[in-house]
Nucleic acid binder design. Sequence first.
RNA 1: CGGGGUGUAGCGCAGUCUGGUAGCGCAUCGGUUUUGGGAACCGAGGGCCGGAGGUUCGAAUCCUCUCACCCCGACCA
Length: 575
Amino acid sequence: MRLSQTLVPTLKENPGEAQVVSHKLMLRAGMIRQLGAGIYSWLPLGLRVLRKVENIVREEMDRAGAQEVLMPAVQPAELWKESGRWSQYGAELLRFQDRGERDFCFGPTHEEVITDLVRHELRSYKQLPANFYQIQTKFRDEVRPRFGMMRGREFLMKDAYSFDLDQESLDNSYQIMFQAYQAIFRRCGLTFRAVEADTGAIGGSDSHEFHVLAGSGEDEIASCDHCHYAANLEKAVPGPLEEVALTSSGAAMERVETPGIRTIEEVAGFLKVPAHQTVKSLVVETSEGAAILLLRGDHELNEIKASHLLEGEGFHLPDPAAVQKLTGVTVGSLGPVGATLPLIADYALENQTDFVCGANQEGWHLTGVCWGRDLPRPRFADLRNVRAGDRCPRCETGHFSLDRGVEVGHVFKLGDKYTRAMKMTVLNKEGREQTPLMGCYGIGVSRIVAAAIEQNHDDNGIVWPVSLAPFHVEILLVNPKETEAMELAESLYNRLGQANLSTLLDDRRERIGVKFKDADLIGAPLRVVIGGRGIKEGMVEVQSRHDGASQKVEIGAVAEHLIERLQALMAEAVV
RNA sequence: CGGGGUGUAGCGCAGUCUGGUAGCGCAUCGGUUUUGGGAACCGAGGGCCGGAGGUUCGAAUCCUCUCACCCCGACCA
């Protein structure tokens, strides 16, 4: 491709609206342009990368035995009413009507459509297992789109749906997808981690998320430094505490005056006890009522875990005024002793003794509190977020480290949620109708482009992994007016094309400095500089975007040299 | 949805407090000289100052309403 004939509007300055590296660089390299909040156009350069990702995904899905289809983006409301999600799915579902005032939505996901398709077309167990996928534009009316392609409203997604006769077969389909996903992200040159995830409202037994590690990621993931256990913070379970259980001093519970003391830090500081010897009491509420959750002072509540424990919908932490109304005490002095609401305590408090907590009276706390003596032992449960350094629950040897990640893939076992709701059955060996089990598997194709940049850039621009690079090689013509150099560039360009290397020829009438800067932004792995001094010596210069190293190569040998270098880079990437 | 911020040339911004016919840098177009890391000089074009209404002799500037975008939070198959 010739840069002089291609729209690659690079920017010198960072656009004001961009916060994260990938967004800035995608705009600056002329890959995308924003149309509205969370809505973008892909320009030629960006589209080439998007297609690269798409093709890797397609190849691996095909290899894994999935069949590609393409379903409608616009879906009738009837299907969503049938599954029950028309009312469940909130404002994130973009709804509209056609001229006949019939309700439709722009598909944020396609469980209903695929289930509808398959219930008409699959009749026999002999047709299972089956797995269908598509690469489709989705729309989710996110409450807050942000970070460019990382969290857009319109985005490109690969979604796949498997259908199996029984659990064992579903487990197998899931496993196949899990492995295909690993192959996909590996081929994209990404550093990623597969983590156990919360299944969310959709339910089901198993779920894994695939995260690309990056500081700008929106999710926090905990991974064991010893075994393979890794989980989204939402779900990560702490192993047994390593701190020695406190042995009771035998001292009696005591009421102490703590004027104006509210937070755990203030309590610990005022009473000169470590934060882990305090207990914090948090009031939570659902449609079924309120409860008090107890956590060690230095631990943090995991709201997702807590919401799973409580009956009812609409889990939330009431504001301080509401808490006072529910308990009669101000937030800072709340405590479990004599509390009227049901108590649930975190496992970390099971062996706790002599702790400090609120006295349920403004300005007073209790010290030396012990379970069984000063108040009945409450129900214990896992309520907290794990922390870096906590012991792993699986191997009980390793410890957690926490990383931020960008979720680029998610695999679920759905079970019969949709097949049952939408009455999909096939005849089994006995000739009876049986409801198949579903799995669903998503990959954020456009998000991968952003995630790859988050992981592969430097101060000057993008440093593409070979497999995703829009071009393998960029040829920089120092001066297009030099006919000898121009001819040389042309013949090299053609030669590389024949060898199936994609090449960008910067034949613009720009100064070489401009070309260097743009080449850095665009980030092709290899770069050839033709013209100026070298050409008189019969040499051109080959540079690596990755480490900036450059070397002179004889003109006659450049093509072979580049081809070899590229092959080496690709081989390296496969490892 | 709550809180905060910003809308002025293609991009990045100043001007708004204190009302008086709109400016800087980059980019664009023409010319000259340059030519290995975002060139220099000369000249030119480009704005209903997000939109509507109001106050005023006069509004980018003050008031009211509205729209869009960005950030924090809540939310998130």
